[in-house]
Simulated assay, not measured.
Amino acid sequence: MSVNVQSGEGRGIALPSRRAWGWIGFYALILLAWVSVALMARGQASGGIPAEFWAALCASAAEASLPALWAMWALMAAAMMLPTFVPALRTFADLSATGATTAAGAAALVAGYGAVWLTASALGAGAQAALARAGMLTPFGASLSPWLTAALLVGAGLYQFSVVKAACLAKCRMPLTFFMERWRPGAPAAFAMGLRLGAVCLGCCWALMALGFVGGVMNLVWMGAATLFMTLEKLPDIGRRLTRPVGWALIIAGGVTALRATGFV
């Protein structure tokens, strides 16, 4: 929607509506997260000030100082998980057209969703610190152990077939049903629904996010591929055709990795 105002020459100028500005801000947040991640990845490869930041992150992983690692994981989560939230947020925004909610409610929904992933980012940072102290990761978060790699791949593959994954995906694929079952007016209620949606999304995606330890937690190729897959998997018509084949592919890849570690391949 837009609002028309008249210029000095009498021509109409279309200005974005409040809802449009909200979407602009949301996508700007996603863009900012990806740009920040890309700058850090560039620093990893080419040096300069970003490389100094990466050096601090590496030291933090080895010494179990979590704040810098948490910031890195939070940026990664924002870049990867906010795009997957678009269908639910769009459904919520459509409800605002009926007067059922407001812009403050939409902001509260996003805040609740983000709070879950900020918490998950702290857990990811803790896992990276622990694995780094155990000597199982490179300084940039990639697995040094074929057995860890195999376990992550097989574990993520098996989770694709789990009841928990199926239940979470069912809710993610039907956001309107989710809101109809839990709807209450007001920003606090929207925040609570955002928390629930974040928990459901975490239930869908945590095992796939853990695969970052296979190739490096800030590997842009992996991040882009994982974001695309997790977004498509939440679409009803497309996602149902992807979940199980990807599960089998991950299990096979993990099995091959384990066989190579034992010398059979």
Rank of each mutant, 00 (worst) to 15 (best):
V35R: 08
F161E: 07
A68F: 07
G203Q: 00
G8R: 14
C172M: 12
T84Q: 11
A28N: 07
P83F: 00
L228G: 03
G194S: 01
G212N: 04
C58N: 11
T177E: 13
F191S: 01
A104T: 13
A107Y: 09
F264P: 00
R19N: 13
P67K: 02
W21D: 06
M174E: 13
S143Y: 07
W222E: 12
M40K: 12
S36M: 13
M230I: 05
E233Y: 00
V5F: 01
S2L: 09
A14R: 15
M180K: 14
L176G: 11
P175G: 01
M209K: 04
M76L: 14
G8W: 15
T98D: 10
P175S: 05
A20P: 05
L202H: 04
N219Y: 03
F53T: 15
L158P: 01
E181K: 13
L39D: 14
L148V: 14
N4E: 14
I49C: 11
G22T: 05
V214F: 12
L109R: 03
R11L: 14
C58Q: 15
V265Y: 06
M81K: 09
L153M: 12
W183D: 03
M81Q: 04
M174V: 08
G48H: 01
R42P: 00
W34K: 09
G186E: 03
R240E: 09
A166W: 05
C205V: 02
R240W: 01
L75M: 14
A78E: 03
R182S: 07
A127F: 03
R196H: 10
A125P: 01
W73Q: 14
M136C: 00
T101G: 13
G22E: 08
W222P: 01
A134P: 03
M174N: 15
A258T: 10
S143C: 07
G141F: 07
A226Y: 00
Y159I: 05
R11S: 12
L39T: 11
L144P: 10
G48Q: 07
A62F: 06
W73D: 09
A28Q: 02
A166R: 12
P188E: 02
R133I: 02
K165W: 11
L202D: 03
F85K: 06
R18Y: 08
L195Y: 04
L197G: 02
M180W: 09
